[in-house]
Design a protein around this nucleic acid. Structure first.
Lengths: 252, 252
DNA sequence: CGAGTTTTTGAGCAGATTCAAATCAAGTGG
DNA sequence: CCACTTGATTTGAATCTGCTCAAAAACTCG
């Protein structure tokens, strides 16, 4: 319901006019090079909720970027239960998990209806090989992806559920801001269960965490609609300053 | 105490005769290319325990590979306590964390006395740019590094301390095997505290976990000397099949 | 062999999990 | 338009795991 006209434009006009241009692969290359990149980018019909871009064990043949919508990448273990290893917002590459082995270790599932660009990996490598700007940018987006992985781990090592949740919301908000979306009034694309499986918590613990943050006046929650009321406080909680004791008042 | 003669050899003869050749950057390139790579590799004097290869905030100017010994990479937060984000065995690249921003997000600390190869990153990029085999291999080792990050996260999302510990030992053993070291009789290069900070647990919990595994006959522990007695069982625990109930016997 | 460090062990407690039930949101079909 | 179904989220109560603090035991290394 948010950006139907935009989609049409980007669909027609491609990278050059895409609002994500500065964040995505095209960043920092000139027009001629852009055309070369654009020649290999495929724009597919919208992906429906629950559809997969690739599955575990698939050979790496393309990387994907959502122009809108959101994805999760999950690891399904032999018992059939899934572990969420990442959420992907527009402009963030999906599929880099296969770089090492050439085979996907996880699968990418659409959390919302989404439009994606598909970039065949071999061709991307080829173009990158003789377009230094793209090479560099590719390295950069890979690096950013690694950075998000590290952020994830920073959440997971926190021992307090509330810290993990605060860090999660904080990080999500930051990422929304960098892609130019409202970062304080959020409609979460993922369920509580997804969040729980992402944070290594029980679903109920996530729910309680949200409630707790609401009681403390940090956010307001209505199902998946979350509003950040006190950015500074969320920040503080995320970076795990004081233990939740009542010393907070003393220090403040 | 383990490989002093080997060090001398690799020191003199370089990549071509290094036992890690097949795992490290040189894998899959021909002799001429190897010489080109070798020309930029610096081999430094041994690094002492506790020495750092780089610190948080340092610009990325080189990546490192240990020929022997071990490193940890840590993140030190504002409160001064450190989070261990990785352990690095011989042949595994250290320093890739800076790919995204060009600045190191973490610091690399020697856990043992170690010999390292230092590869200036710019020069590596240059050589890689016109040596496709190296380019590919670079991607591969980056990918492997990403893979190890994912393994780490797989540990961290586990909610049971014992599962995390089992997964840790299991993964370490596998990695030792791939570099051709004894994988079932291990001398851990890291302290319980390092492991705890790596797994997001209290140090005591790690210790108890080891003890528990020993009581169950899966491993035998004497301080840092660990012997894996029941590989299959460790595997099973790591992949978190049945909850520790007594159903195990029924299924067995 | 001692001093210092690392590891193990113990006891009590706080926080997260589990299981269960209630509430809420959003469709669907009458 | 409303009652009803279905799925998601929240809340409650009891249990259990892992944490903290404290002390003992085992290693390391001059």
């Amino acid at each position: 319901m948010a950006t139907p006209t935009l989609d049409l434009i980007t669909l027609r006009k491609g990278c050059a006019s895409c609002s994500l241009q500065q964040l995505c692969l095209p960043a920092g290359i000139n027009l001629r090079e852009l055309q070369e990149l654009e020649a290999i980018v495929k724009r597919k019909r919208p992906v429906e909720v629950g559809e997969r871009l690739f599955r575990q064990g698939d050979r790496l043949d393309a990387v994907f970027v959502a122009r809108d919508g959101a994805f999760k990448t999950v690891l399904v273990n032999e018992d059939g239960d899934e572990q969420v290893i990442g959420f992907h917002l527009p402009g963030e590459l999906v599929g880099l998990d296969a770089l090492g082995t050439g085979v996907h270790r996880c699968e990418a599932v659409a959390l919302t209806r989404a439009n994606v660009c598909e970039v065949p990996f071999d061709e991307l490598s080829n173009v990158a090989a003789h377009v230094p700007g793209l090479q560099r940018q590719l390295m950069r987006v890979i690096g950013q992806s690694v950075g998000r992985d590290q952020d994830h781990r920073e959440m997971l090592v926190r021992r307090q559920a509330n810290e993990r949740i605060a860090l999660f919301l904080h990080g999500l908000s930051e990422r929304l801001r960098t892609i130019g979306e409202p970062s304080e009034t959020i409609r979460l694309p993922m369920s509580r269960e997804d969040i729980a499986r992402f944070l290594g918590l029980a679903l109920e613990t996530v729910s309680r965490g949200f409630t707790r943050l609401q009681e403390d006046g940090v956010i307001s929650v209505h199902g998946r609609k979350v509003q950040i009321l006190d950015v500074a406080e969320l920040d503080r909680l995320a970076h795990g300053s004081e233990p939740p004791g009542d010393r907070a008042r003393v220090r403040a």
